[in-house]
Amino acid sequence: MFLQQLINGLTLGSVYALIALGYTMVYGILELINFAHGEIYMLGAYLGIILLGFFTAIGLTSQSLSLSIILTLILTIIFCSSYGFTIEKIAYKPLRRSPRLSPLISAIGVSIFLQNYVMLTQGATDKVFSSIFGNAGFDFLSTRITYLQLAIILVSAVIMLLLHAFILKTKTGKAMRAVAQDKTMASLLGINIDTVISATFIIGSGLAAIAGVMVAMYYGLVNYYIGYTAGIKAFTAAVLGGIGSVPGAMLGGVILGLAESLGASYILREYIEYKDAFAFIILITILLAKPEGLLGKTSEEKI
C-alpha cells in the first residue's frame, strides 16, 4: 500500500515538476506568473490524445507503437512550443514595460481564451482515449508498477537532467541565467533579451507538452479544465521549491506529488472532498510562511 502510493506520488510529482519548470523559468526571467502555462499543458494532453487517435486510425499504432508515441511527443512539443511562443509575442511582450499586474491580467485572459477555445472545438465533455497500454507492468514487493509509470518517472528525470545541463552548459542557457539576474546588464553585454525570453517560453511549453502527453496516456482522459488545477498545483510546486530556481521546481514537484498521494490515502482520508483545496492551502501556507521556498533566495527591495 505505502509503496504503491509512493510510486503513484512519484509519477504525479514528475508531471508536476515538468510543468513547474515552465512557471519557474518564466518567473525567473520576467517575474511574471504565467497563468496560461497550465493551459499549455492541457493543450498538450489534448494533442496527445488527438494525435494518438489519429495514428491509431491510420494504423500506425498497431504497426509500431513506439514510433507513434515518439511522433506524438515530437508533434505535441512542436505545437505547444509554438503556442507558448505566440502567446508571449501577443499577450506579454507588448506589456513588458507595464506595471507588474497588467501582464498577469493578460495571462488570465489568455488562460480563459484557451480553455474556451478547446471547449468550443473539442466539446465540453471528457475526451476519452482507450489506453493502448492496459495495465502492463510488473510486480515488485507485491506492488504493481506499470511500465507507463516507470516510463513517466524515467523520462521526466532524464529531461530534467538534460535541462539542467542545458542551462549550465550551453550558450542559450547561460544567456538565460544572465537575463534572469540582470536584464539591463545582459542586454549591455550583447545578449538579445527577446530571443532569450522566446527560448524560455518555447522550452517551458515543450516541457508542459511532454507532461500533457504522458498524463493523457496515463489517465486516458482529458477535459478542457484540467489545466487550471494542474497549473495551480505546479505553481505551488514551483513556489515550494523556490520560484526562479530550476532544481527547486523539480524538488517541489516531487514533494507535492508525494504529499498529495500519501496525504490523500493516509492523513486526509476523511476530507477527500476537499482534495482540490489542498494545493491552495499548501500554496497559501508557503507564501505566508516561507515565500522564498526551499531553494530560493530572498531579495530586498531597492529604495
Binding site: 501577443i90 499577450a91 493578460s106 488570465i108 485572459g109 489568455v110
Partner: peptide
C-alpha cells in the same frame, strides 16, 4: 472566449480602461 480575448486586448491597447486617466497603473 471573447472575454479572454478582451482582457488581453484591453491590457495591450488600453490598460487604463475606457474612462481611466492617462497613466493609471495597476
Amino acid at each position: 472566449l471573447a472575454m479572454g480575448c478582451g482582457m488581453v486586448l484591453l491590457m495591450v491597447f488600453r490598460p487604463q480602461g475606457l474612462f481611466g486617466g492617462k497613466n493609471v497603473s495597476i
